[in-house]
Design a protein around this nucleic acid. Structure first.
Lengths: 133, 133
DNA sequence: TTTAAATGATACCATTAAGGTGTCATTTGT
DNA sequence: ACAAATGACACCTTAATGGTATCATTTAAA
């Protein structure tokens, strides 16, 4: 069971690194060198961040990415949502018939409570807060 | 993201159903009929529960399974551990080199906190508590 | 004593998602 | 002109999940 995927983890690392270098532009090549992360995968990750408005990109030589949002506004919960789908731990396992079952729905209630707690916590975690440690 | 797998879900359903019928023996065939769960998969699940001491089994005609433990002692956290491994949301994604990285470990700290909250909650959930709803 | 119903044990298969790579087009500073 | 960068995709590989099938053994009951 893993709350974060590598995608999300890479994004967090990249954003922290870029925040440290701002306002300098950072390319996928830089991140590969500095963080030892696989470049092709990193590129996909960065493109996703760009499309979602977290990063601005510059093409061509000396191109790269820069942060758009202040680090305080980049929430871990949103990054998870971006790369892994909305934070939800209780996706129904039975889309068809069994969901009506009275006896098992209490299970979902418990899961939803945990989910709510986790989400509340995750919303409080930002790139800024992670950098303070 | 899903906190429970179908395996765990099936186990919970089966245990609740068996608790309702106790001390009668319940076979995989019964569960297939009453809960409309796939029998071959259910059998594997029941065998796992038996091996772990939750169920007693009787072979032969009119055989089947019966509860061993009182429903108050069957914890959701333990069932999850049985079928999905120990509850842990922050398994390190990088077993090799990168784990030393000072900047990303704060991430794990946050995850560990959430994990602790979730685990505490899950330990309080038992088959008995689920049946009360 | 034969038979059908049950578990024990295990091997196998299918689907999906995660993680990762590769390619081609386009842009741009030098 | 050229090299370095992103944009946009198309693949590939692996592992976990969900599920099926088979054979041996046990046992109650006809």
């Amino acid at each position: 069971m893993n709350l974060l995927t590598r995608n999300t983890d890479y994004a967090v690392r990249a954003l922290i690194h870029m925040a440290g270098k701002a306002p300098e532009r950072v390319s996928a090549r830089d991140l590969e060198r500095d963080l030892e992360l696989p470049r092709p995968f990193m590129r996909k990750t960065l493109q996703a961040l760009q499309k979602s408005g977290y990063l601005a990109s510059a093409k061509g030589k000396n191109g790269g990415f820069t942060l758009v949002l202040p680090v305080e506004k980049i929430r871990l919960a949103d990054l998870i949502a971006l790369f892994q789908g909305p934070v939800s731990m209780g996706d129904c396992l039975f889309r068809k018939k069994l969901c009506e079952c009275v006896k098992t729905c209490p299970l979902r209630r418990e899961i939803k409570q945990i989910e709510a707690m986790a989400l509340a916590h995750l919303r409080g975690v930002t790139i800024a807060s992670l950098m303070k440690r």
